[in-house]
Each structure stands twice: as C-alpha cells, then as structure tokens.
Write a protein that binds this DNA or RNA. Structure first.
Lengths: 127, 127
DNA sequence: TGAACGTATGAACATCAATTCATATGTTCA
DNA sequence: TGAACATATGAATTGATGTTCATACGTTCA
C-alpha cells in the first residue's frame, strides 16, 4: 500500500544541512537567475537565432530579413521587438526603412559558446 | 486606401542581392540553428537554471534539490530529465538515492557568458 | 495632400511547456 | 517477501509564446 497522502514522504531526513546552507549562500539571487533565464529564453527560438546570425554579416532591414528567412514581415517584426527589448539588437531609421544590427559582441559570444557545446556533443557521440 | 490584399507588398524590390547571397552562405544550416535554439531553450527556465547553479557546488540528490528550491520532488525530477536529455547533467545511483551533477564545464561557461551580458546591461543602465 | 511603401502592433488562434497529482518503478532492510 | 523510501513518469491543467491576419503608423514623393 502506498503512503496515505500519495507520496511526499521525502522529509529531507538525511539532508546534509551544511551543504545546503553553503549552496544557498553561493547561488545568485532569485531575481538574477530569473533575468538570466529570460535572456536565454530569447535565444531559445530558432527564428530569433536565424535573425541574429543574419545580422552577423551586416545590418539589414525588416523586409530583407523576412525574405532571407522566408517568413512574413509581421512575424519578423514581432521577433525583432523581442530582440530589441532584450537589447540584443539596435536599429536606425533611414527614410521608410529601418535597419537592424547587433547591439554588441555579446550575441556572438553567447551563440559561439552554445555552438561549441553542440560541436563537442556531436564529436563525442561520433566516437 | 490600403493595399488590396491587406499588405504583403514589400516585394523585396530594393534588396541587395549580393548581400543576401553572401549571408545565406555564412549562416549555419537550418538544422544546426534549430539544435542551438533547443539548447538555449533548456537554459531559458529559471527552475532549470537554479538546479544547475545548485549543482555547481556539489552533486546532489533529487530530494535535496527539491528542498533547496522549495519545490516538490516531481517537478524537479521532470526538469532533471530535460537536463539529462540535453546532456547537461549526469547521475549516479547509490542505493535508493540518485545523485545528479554537472556533465561538464560547458554549463558554467554558458551561464557565465549570460551573466556577463546581464552585468554589462545593468552597468550601462546605471549611468 | 494623398497615394504608395516599409514597418509596427493588437487580437485571435494554435501550440508548447511547466507544474501538479496520482501512481509506477526500483532499492533497501527487517 | 513486503513495508518504507527515493525517484520516475503519464495524464491533466494552466499559462506562456509564435505566427497570422488585419490594420495602424510614419515616411517619401509626385
């Protein structure tokens, strides 16, 4: 017969309190970790990743990005807004056209780190 | 009066074809970018980020992680499965207990890069 | 000014993902 | 073996998110 209340035994009887205490002190604040997750969430969509990679090469207008990715203008515009809010891209207006570009080099660094990880995974699996 | 078919003008008339061509060649394959997005998606959840940070300090069992994060065992177990599938954590069994730990140092690198980005943003906004 | 164009945006819809609940699986020990 | 415990998992639910559609906004130019 299982526990009366389903489960939720696990009363942390054997917990190493010293370890727990130490860990609690070294982990960053809840708020920071939340922001960090929000940042990575932005990179967690292939449309946005494609946009960023495209901007590696040169600044580009919404229309051109849409053509490159074979998506409609609205979808790109919505995603550019997300990237803008995260301060990953910046823009300048030239007449009717708005040109987007990478805000700084962090984008390259972050994407590069992710790429390295993927590369190593596929290498190891290839053995 | 707006266009007849809503919009979807934007016939890419003024597109710089040379730029577009060049960009298309340098952007990684669709599949790779998709995998990259999947990787970052894993980091795009604060529960998983917390788990990873907790594992920075030492290997830990499901129960302890649950206590540290003040969440129930099932939620943690589900998230550990995601981290396991992404090969970001590994585990070893010791009797009834399963200890989880970081799979390699890429986790630290990736999270560190994200942190740096956040730090610079807040610095710049603080001016 | 008004037509044409490039871009932005709000609403609707559909899909996805995190958590919870209930329960199954696997291990230890009396 | 069976009770107790630690973990895993499937189903259900709820909230978040990406895309589309329609349309608004801002700019140029005749």
């Amino acid at each position: 017969m299982p526990d009366k209340n389903g489960m939720e035994r696990c009363d942390f009887i054997h917990v190493h309190e010293d370890i727990v205490k130490r860990v609690q002190q070294t982990v960053p604040d809840e708020e920071v970790l939340y922001d960090l997750a929000e940042l990575f969430k932005v990179f967690g969509d292939s449309t946005r990743i494609k946009i960023l990679y495209v901007l590696f090469e040169s600044e580009m207008c919404v229309c051109d990005i849409a053509q490159l990715l074979n998506m409609n203008q609205s979808a790109i515009s919505h995603q550019l807004r997300v990237l803008k809010q995260s301060q990953l891209v910046k823009y300048r207006r030239d007449g009717k056209t708005v040109f987007y570009s990478l805000a700084d080099d962090h984008v390259r660094t972050i994407l590069g780190t992710g790429m390295e990880h993927l590369a190593e995974l596929t290498n190891n699996n290839g053995n």
